[in-house]
C-alpha cells in the first residue's frame, strides 16, 4: 500500500483552529483572483508533515496559493496558503500547513467556520507586465514571495484545483479532525507561466524541511468561487477510507 503520513496531531491541537461546528453557511464570491505556484519538493520530511489519514502524492509537491477576494460577508481580503499535495484514500487533496490573511474579520471567520489555520500578515497579489506575484510579510519579515513568470492565456477548463484538508478542533471532535473544504470554480480567465519562489520562510508556514526544488507550473485565474458548506470530515489518525464521515448538509 502507498505510504501514509506519520504526523502525530495531538501536540498540535492546542494551537489548532477551534471551529464553531460544521454547520457553516457557504460564501459565494465573484471575481476572485487566484495565483497558484506548484513545485516538486525534496521528500525527506514529507511524511512527518502529513497526518496518518493522508497519502503523499507521487511525486511529492507543495502548492503555494495567493488569492484576492474582492468582496464577501466580511468585506475584501487576501489569503495566502501553503499546502502539501496528498490523497485522501484515492482522492486528490491539499493539506494546509498554514495560511495568512490581511483581514482580522476574515481570519476569524475562516478559522471558526472552515478550520483555516490563519495568521495575520500583509498579503498582496500584484500584476506586473511580465509576471504575477504574490507575497506575504509579517513583523517586517518576508514570509513568502512567489511569481508566475511570462503569463500566457489558457482555457479555464484546463485548470484543476484540489480541495483543502484542514486540521482543526470542533465541538465533539476535541481530539482533532480533518475538515474537507472543496469549493467550486467558474472560471472567467486563466493564464499559465513559469513558477518562481523568491522567498519562503519555512518556519513561518509550519513547513520545516519543505524544499521546493523542481518547478512544475504557475497559474493565475479570475473566477467565481468561495467557501462551501462542509460535506466531509476525517479522523486524522485513521486511513481516510475508514475514517471519513459524511455530514448532513441539507437545509
Amino acid at each position: 500500500m502507498p505510504y501514509s503520513g506519520t504526523l502525530d496531531v495531538a501536540p498540535l491541537l492546542a494551537d489548532a483552529p477551534r471551529m464553531d461546528g460544521f454547520d457553516t453557511e457557504a460564501w459565494e464570491i465573484a471575481g476572485v483572483e487566484i495565483l497558484q505556484v506548484t513545485f516538486e519538493i525534496d521528500d525527506t520530511q514529507m511524511l512527518s508533515l502529513l497526518p496518518k489519514a493522508l497519502h503523499p502524492t507521487i511525486p511529492q509537491i507543495v502548492i503555494f496559493t495567493v488569492a484576492r477576494y474582492p468582496e464577501g460577508p466580511v468585506g475584501a481580503f487576501t489569503l495566502a496558503q501553503v499546502r502539501l499535495g496528498c490523497r485522501a484514500a484515492a482522492l486528490p487533496r491539499g493539506f494546509l500547513l498554514r495560511a495568512y490573511c490581511d483581514s482580522p474579520a476574515a481570519r476569524d471567520a475562516l478559522a471558526r467556520q472552515w478550520g483555516f489555520d490563519c495568521a495575520a500578515g500583509d498579503v498582496r497579489l500584484q500584476r506586473y507586465h511580465d509576471r504575477i506575484s504574490g507575497s506575504v510579510t509579517a513583523d517586517g519579515r518576508d514570509l513568502l514571495r512567489v511569481s508566475l513568470i511570462d503569463p500566457e492565456p489558457i482555457s479555464g477548463g484546463d485548470i484543476q484545483y484540489v480541495a483543502n484538508m484542514h486540521l482543526a478542533v470542533a465541538p465533539g471532535d476535541e481530539r482533532g479532525v480533518l475538515v474537507q473544504v472543496d469549493p467550486e470554480y467558474r472560471f472567467q480567465r486563466a493564464e499559465r507561466g513559469r513558477p518562481e519562489v523568491a522567498a519562503f520562510d519555512r518556519a513561518a508556514w509550519n513547513a520545516a524541511g519543505v524544499d521546493p526544488v523542481w518547478p512544475i507550473v504557475a497559474s493565475y485565474t479570475v473566477c467565481d468561487t468561495g467557501f462551501p458548506r462542509i460535506r466531509y470530515v476525517l479522523d486524522p489518525d485513521k486511513p481516510a477510507i475508514v475514517g471519513t464521515r459524511k455530514l448532513d448538509v441539507g437545509g
Binding site: 502507498p2 506548484t38 497519502h55 502524492t57 507521487i58 511525486p59 509537491i61 499535495g85 490523497r87 484514500a89 484515492a90 482522492l91 486528490p92 489558457i154 482555457s155 484546463d158 485548470i159 484543476q160 484540489v162 486563466a190 499559465r192 512544475i216 507550473v217 497559474s219
Partner: peptide, 14 residues
C-alpha cells in the same frame, strides 16, 4: 493508480 500525479492535475494544458 490514484496515488499518481496525473499530467492534467499538476500542469494545466490543452
Amino acid at each position: 493508480a490514484s496515488q499518481l500525479l496525473a499530467a492534467r492535475e499538476a500542469y494545466p494544458t490543452r
